[in-house]
């Protein structure tokens, strides 16, 4: 199919230009605010290194958990006739639109030491999620997993299901069909959804500080460190923000390469 490329009308281009400025100006703002001579030393203080390390670990774990637990859920949502599916999907996607701090309050109500579940976990297994890295990972997963689920579910619904039917008619069991046909077909979406979830987990702030607290080396991830450094050392806050910006932009640009320009 060949398509004639026509330029959009000038007013549309102008309006789009304004929109681009809307997104670009804050970016330029933070770049010109950065104190480039101290960026490296600001990023290598022990506090900053702790936050970088912790953010990397917790966000990778959150993305991994999202893939491990989100894939079966996406499969169920895309393929099976579970009752009240819109409600179920709404429940799963809720953290995408909920203010993260509300998610943090909800997690706290459900899993703090004084809650029934949190108290039981502590008494039975000595497990405490609050003020622990496990709690930070949980908060990040809570907020990030919906991005994975929505991406993979969409891919499963959109793929050509005749290949699955063909495999099934040739005698493949359902799990085999999933592993040998469905998963390879949607692999790009698994990668894209995983990266989206990872980027979101990396930037998670509200749920983490509310539920897991702000403990150096344990739950003080990059965004929390930025927030705290704003009070004392703005150069350091900007330097840490630049890391988050660079990584997020890299993820989005690489996803675009995978998803929009491949035709």
């Amino acid at each position: 199919m060949s398509r004639v490329r026509r330029r959009p009308p000038a007013p549309v281009v102008a309006a789009a230009g304004v929109t681009i400025l809307f997104f670009a100006i804050p970016l330029v703002g933070i770049l010109q605010r950065a104190n480039w001579s101290t960026v490296w030393s600001d990023l290598t203080t022990s506090g900053a290194r702790d936050a970088l390390r912790l953010s990397l670990i917790s966000s990778v774990l959150a993305a991994g958990l999202s893939i491990a637990f989100g894939t079966p859920l996406a499969w169920v949502l895309a393929r099976s006739a579970v009752p009240a599916k819109p409600l179920l999907r709404g429940l799963v996607l809720l953290p995408m639109v909920l203010p993260p701090v509300v998610g943090g309050v909800a997690l706290l109500a459900a899993f703090s030491l004084r809650s029934p579940i949190g108290g039981w976990l502590h008494d039975a297994f000595g497990l405490q999620l609050t003020f622990a890295t496990s709690g930070a990972v949980m908060a990040e997963t809570f907020v990030a997993m919906p991005f994975y689920v929505i991406t993979v579910e969409g891919a499963m619904r959109g793929m050509d299901q005749r290949y699955e039917d063909a495999a099934a008619s040739l005698g493949a069991r359902r799990l085999t069909v999933f592993r040998r046909v469905t998963l390879p077909t949607i692999a790009p979406s698994v990668v894209a959804g995983g990266m989206l979830a990872w980027a979101r987990a990396l930037g998670e702030f509200g749920a983490t500080i509310t539920f897991a607290g702000n403990v150096m080396g344990r739950t003080r991830t990059l965004p929390l460190a930025v927030y705290l450094e704003l009070e004392s050392n703005q150069d350091a806050a900007v330097a840490l923000s630049l890391v988050l910006l660079a990584v997020s932009l890299l993820v989005l640009v690489s996803l675009r390469g995978r998803w929009l320009s491949s035709s």
Partner: peptide, 23 residues
């Protein structure tokens, strides 16, 4: 085509969320 539009929608939502959380 639908396979492609939903990740795009997710991207848009992500961008909006980032913008919102920065305000």
């Amino acid at each position: 085509m639908r396979a492609r539009t939903e990740p795009v929608a997710a991207l848009l939502v992500l961008v909006m969320l980032i913008a919102a959380s920065c305000s």
